[in-house]
C-alpha cells in the first residue's frame, strides 16, 4: 500500500500548518497520536492479569464481603450466590467431567481469582458498574471465594493474597492458540 508510506513531512504538506509538528523520519503512519500522561494512563489501565499486576491498595474480608453481597448482588445472583434470576456464582466444584449439564461457576470453572476482582470491579453490579470501592471489590471477591470453599472464613484478600489463590479448575484449560512470536 503506497498510501501507508506517508512520511511526517508529507503529512505536514497534506494537512497544512495545524498538523502536529513531530518530524520522525522513521514513522510510516500519519503520526497523529497524542502523548498520554502517567496520571491519565493510570485511570484507564484497570485490567488485572493472573500475576495480580495493577491490583490496587486496600483489602477485604469475607465478613465485609457478605454485607456488600447482600446489598449489591443478592437481588440478581440469589442468596449465597446460588443463582436466579442471574448466573449462579457458587457450586459445582469438582463436578465438571461427564456428559450431563455442568454447573460452571466462579468456584467450579474460573481458572484465576484475579479475574473475579477484575470482572466485578468493571462490570458489576450490572445496574451500577464501577460503583464499588476497591475495598468492597476485594471483600465481595473474598466472600465468593469463601462460599466456594476456596479460602477460609478469616482469610483477607489484597494485592498479595488474591493472586496467590489457586482456583480448583486452574489447570484444566488447554490453549488452542500457539503463540507464533
Amino acid at each position: 500500500m503506497s498510501m501507508l508510506k506517508f512520511t511526517a513531512a508529507a503529512v505536514l504538506v497534506a494537512l497544512g500548518s495545524t498538523a502536529v509538528a513531530q518530524t520522525r523520519s522513521a514513522v510510516k503512519g500519519p503520526d497523529l497520536g497524542q502523548p498520554v500522561s502517567a496520571e491519565d494512563l493510570a485511570k484507564w489501565d484497570i485490567e488485572i492479569p493472573p500475576s495480580g499486576k495493577g491490583l490496587p491498595a486496600g483489602s477485604g474480608t469475607v465478613a465485609a464481603g457478605e454485607a456488600v453481597y447482600a446489598k449489591s448482588c443478592q437481588s440478581c445472583h440469589g442468596p449465597k450466590g446460588a443463582g436466579k434470576p442471574n448466573d449462579a456464582l457458587v457450586g459445582g466444584v469438582g463436578n465438571l467431567a461427564g456428559k450431563g449439564p455442568a454447573l460452571k461457576t466462579v468456584g467450579s470453572y474460573w481458572p484465576y481469582a484475579t479475574t473475579v476482582f477484575d470482572y466485578v470491579r468493571r462490570s458489576m453490579p450490572v445496574s451500577a458498574p464501577q460503583s464499588l470501592s476497591n475495598e468492597e471489590v476485594y471483600a465481595v471477591t473474598a466472600y465468593l471465594l469463601h462460599l466456594n470453599g476456596i479460602i477460609g472464613a478469616d482469610d483477607v484478600m489484597d494485592a498479595k493474597t488474591l493472586p496467590a489463590v489457586k482456583m480448583p479448575n486452574r489447570d484444566s484449560f488447554m490453549s488452542l492458540y500457539k503463540s507464533r512470536k
Binding site: 485490567e47 488485572i48 492479569p49 493472573p50 460452571k104 466462579v106 470453572y109 474460573w110 481458572p111 484465576y112 484475579t114 479475574t115 477484575d118 470482572y119 462490570s123 484449560f173
Partner: peptide, 10 residues
C-alpha cells in the same frame, strides 16, 4: 500474556 478476562475464561 493474555489477561484472562472473564469472557476468555468463564
Amino acid at each position: 500474556a493474555p489477561v484472562m478476562a472473564r469472557d476468555e475464561t468463564s
